[in-house]
Design a protein around this nucleic acid. Structure first.
Lengths: 231, 231
DNA sequence: GCAAAAGTGTTATCAGTACACCCATGG
DNA sequence: CCATGGGTGTACTGATAACACTTTTGC
């Protein structure tokens, strides 16, 4: 292994949060470099002895003080040799969902400013990060329909209308309340609790529901397919 | 950018070929290193000024003399810090389909031995390449059902039974011939040619069909969804 | 004429879709 | 009593699933 590469490896994360019918993306403000004062996705170079996934989690903790609920690899950006003006940088982008508990950003060790932006009000992002957000957004929309990841954006216990509004607002579609409930309940992976709460300012209180992950995992074994389609 | 990483970046490809109801994977024999004489996936280190995708294509040409029909990024392997005993190597794996024209392997510049293995008769592969093959195999099965990529494994013109057998053998399911044909034809992306040929040793000759990519691309614009499900 | 593969329609069943009214709460 | 959101059932429709015989060719 004589040949030395002049390539550096980084990770970036597209972190989605959801609150009040709005989908948010996490961005941080650059303090140095070409993109000083620009908003970019949280991320950074990986250490020599650090697994990729560890690097992402570390960066998220350092830059925004959050830990995420769901994390998966999205895509590796390495076709544009000049995507970073400092030299050849290849970046592995991760797709993440954060649950509302972690939605509030803690003070960050890196002294960078971290902030949630509604996805349709994102500022101009540095590097090719807009491209990453777009891809992640597509993935989110796609996965919502064939994997129960929506629950990772909600509280542990939620109203059925929360789930419905989440699907409705992220997929930008109207949903029939009765059909939606029928479909979700037919999977048997969401269970009703006994708690009746009034979460809204007005209206009748609703029951809280929980995602039954164990049940889902066990169903996965036997030809079970989660899928939500709409009219 | 003072800190220098000691990480090297490679690409690997899982290339699928299909012939006579059998799914094949391309492997090459290592001539040097720890895995000397082991079979591994085609791949290698990328050059400093080389896009990832170019690196994959180059390696495939060098090591097996083939160019592929379909190529997409699969996953980046960088969580196991010791996946390569020579040091920290992160590898971007690509998923590729080759059409039958390129199925015959040409002499390779790298003097490595390249060979097609039926997927269920793969030899032990070096590194974490078995893991890559498994993931790619899963992706292939999945994509077959919701994207028309099966055509990339077939000749430009094919018998309907070829397509049916491909789905049938890769997905390991029985298919009802009439329902399958009805479904595929209903999409309008496969057109019948006037050619009647006898491709088989015996039996009635069949019409040749072609995948109409332009039609597919135009349909994609408008809420069209390719999907094949089975009983 | 026999073996092998191509070609072709109809019916039954199930899942998806459309749709509207009553209930519980707060103000 | 009014506004707001929660909760519920049925009938229609369209897609999927099951199913078997006839045709063309080579030998």
């Amino acid at each position: 292994m004589e040949i030395k590469q002049q390539i550096r490896l980084a990770v970036d994360a597209i972190v989605f949060g959801y609150e009040k019918n709005t989908l948010y993306v996490l961005a941080v403000q650059q303090k140095y470099g070409v993109f000083k004062d620009f908003w970019v996705l949280p991320g950074g170079f990986i250490k020599d002895d650090e697994p990729l996934i560890t690097a992402v989690k570390r960066e998220l903790l350092e830059e925004a003080g959050i830990s995420v609920n769901y994390l998966e690899q999205l895509n590796t950006y390495g076709d544009d040799v000049h995507r970073d003006s400092r030299g050849r940088v290849v970046s592995v982008a991760y797709f993440a969902l954060v649950n509302p508990q972690n939605f509030v950003l803690k003070a960050d060790t890196d002294a960078k400013d971290a902030k949630w932006f509604p996805i349709d009000k994102l500022p101009k992002l540095g590097y090719d990060h807009k491209e990453m957000v777009d891809l992640a957004h597509q993935r989110l929309k796609g996965k919502l329909t064939y994997q129960p990841i929506g629950f990772d954006l909600l509280d542990d216990e939620f109203l059925f209308s929360d789930l419905e509004n989440l699907y409705c607002s992220i997929l930008e579609q109207d949903i029939d309340r009765r059909n939606f409930r029928k479909k979700i309940l037919s999977f048997g992976i969401v269970k009703e609790t006994e708690k009746l709460v009034k979460m809204r300012a007005s209206g009748r209180p609703g029951k809280l529901f929980k995602f039954d992950k164990d049940k889902y995992d066990s169903l996965l074994g036997e030809n079970f397919q989660f899928e939500i389609k709409f009219a």
